[in-house]
Amino acid sequence: MPRFSVVVPAFNGAAHIAECLESVLSQGVDDLEVIVADDRSSDETPTLVRALAERDSRVRLVERAENGGTLRARRDGVLASTGDYVLLVDQDDALAPGALEEIEAALTDHDPDILHFGVSVIAENAAAEGAAAGMTGFLTPPPRRLEGEKILQTQFSGDRGFDWHVHHKVYRGEIARSAWAATHDVRLTLSDDLYASFLLCSMATTYVAVPDAPWYEYHLGRGETFGARQTVEDVLATSERDHAALTLIEDFACSGAVVRDDWPARVADVRDRLIEHVMNELHDGLSAEGQRAAIDGVLSLWPADAVAGELYRFVRDRAYALFDARTCPKSSDELHRLLADARRADELVSGPVSPRYAIMKEAAERHLGDLENLKDERSVRGVVRHLLARLRTR
């Protein structure tokens, strides 16, 4: 049984797979297996991996009979692993030099079920350069140790949670294999990280995040049109994809695979994070006209209180920005449209509502009140200036 199993899901990755695998094989660690789970590539990926496996016995190719998506490829690779610990590396990313030595030392010091370390974000295009700093912050965990149910309680919390990417983490082998074995045999695009991470954190009993540990090289924008303008169809696809992940998580919570008393709250945390992601894509990627069209589609899948809560978040942020600048909104300001959209969604809200909805609506109303007070103050100041001007002319 090797110390480390490094699983690389691959699909048409011939451009970067050799670089990725070399970064792992050059770590200077022999007690290692590298499993490439090929998702029925149509390029030279399997050929390149077979050739490498002939030269290095640490490399093993697992081939799917048909294309099934990243969740299935990762599952095949993890279930084929035998290591004490499992790492996942994407085909266009890499491990930093000396990463496994650093990881081994951290495992020895802390003995966690999940070891979470940081990233070095490498921007691959101009759009990615602008986002690299924010991505680095998002993917760099605050140092801490969590135990038992606190792990999942913290991960999807709106307060100091941690990211759900399955790379730049190391998992105890039996927990990784149990978690991926419990996943549904479905195609799940992009949201598969969140789904698998939810299961992993449900099963783990110890989690440790270490500081100053940029041991994973994340190539932001490589192999994708990062920064491209979104369409309404793109946002609705994101909405459907994230909703599918939420459904799978709800199924797991009800399955009895892990027993805990707080499943409704933990599922609610995930719902809040997912609808936040959907609405951020809508707000940041679409024109005003596109946002209005997309909101209707999002409302067809997600509860009205979830959608209204995020729209009130945008109202809150815009109202605060105007108040902070001591600027009253003009008739053309987006605040008016955001508020109209929020109220339109709010009209559909009925029954019990989420705490996040109530918090965001209250905050939006408070900041709108601040703007009204600012407007009144300016009106009073205007009247005073007018009176003073008249006095001075007499």
Rank of each mutant, 00 (worst) to 15 (best):
F156C: 01
R3Q: 07
G137I: 04
V7E: 05
E377D: 08
A237N: 12
A321R: 15
S178W: 12
Y85A: 04
P9S: 03
S42R: 15
D262L: 01
H386A: 14
R74M: 09
M203C: 04
T238F: 13
A65G: 12
G297M: 01
S5W: 12
R390K: 08
P264A: 07
A131T: 11
F198I: 10
A209L: 08
R266E: 08
R266Q: 13
R187K: 06
A14P: 15
E217A: 10
S26Y: 06
M203T: 01
V315A: 03
A288L: 13
S157F: 12
A105E: 14
T82V: 13
N125S: 11
A389W: 01
I359D: 00
E217S: 08
H168S: 12
L21C: 08
L61E: 04
G130T: 11
R390W: 05
D185N: 10
Y320F: 13
L248F: 06
A319F: 01
V384M: 00
T327G: 06
F323D: 02
G83Q: 03
H165I: 04
A364H: 07
Y216I: 01
T140S: 14
Q153N: 11
P352E: 07
V210Y: 12
L95R: 03
L190R: 15
V298W: 09
Q230Y: 11
S354I: 09
D76F: 12
V6G: 05
D92M: 01
G285D: 02
Y357E: 02
D92F: 11
A268G: 09
V119N: 01
E66H: 15
L371T: 15
Y85P: 06
G13N: 10
P142T: 00
W180D: 11
V210R: 01
D39K: 07
K330T: 10
H283E: 00
F138C: 02
Y357M: 00
R378C: 05
Y85Q: 07
T225F: 06
V34E: 03
R316E: 02
R343T: 11
P112K: 03
L115V: 00
D163H: 15
I275M: 03
E19N: 09
Y218S: 04
L199D: 07
T247F: 08
M135C: 10
V270S: 00
A294I: 06
A128W: 05
G69F: 02
A105I: 10
L52C: 07
E129S: 10
R266P: 07
S26D: 14
G148I: 03
D251G: 09
D317K: 13
L338K: 13
T189Y: 14
D269P: 07
D296G: 08
R273P: 00
R144P: 15
H336V: 00
Q27L: 10
A340R: 13
I275T: 12
H367W: 12
L79R: 06
S255N: 04
P112T: 01
D324N: 09
A345C: 08
T154E: 02
V6R: 11
R72G: 14
S157Q: 00
R40A: 13
A268E: 10
N67Q: 15
T82D: 11
D346K: 04
A268T: 14
L52V: 06
Y312Q: 00
G309L: 03
R313V: 06
H167C: 12
R60C: 04
L322N: 01
H219R: 12
R316A: 06
A265S: 13
R172W: 09
A94P: 05
G369M: 01
I359C: 04
G158I: 12
K169E: 07
E44G: 05
R64M: 10
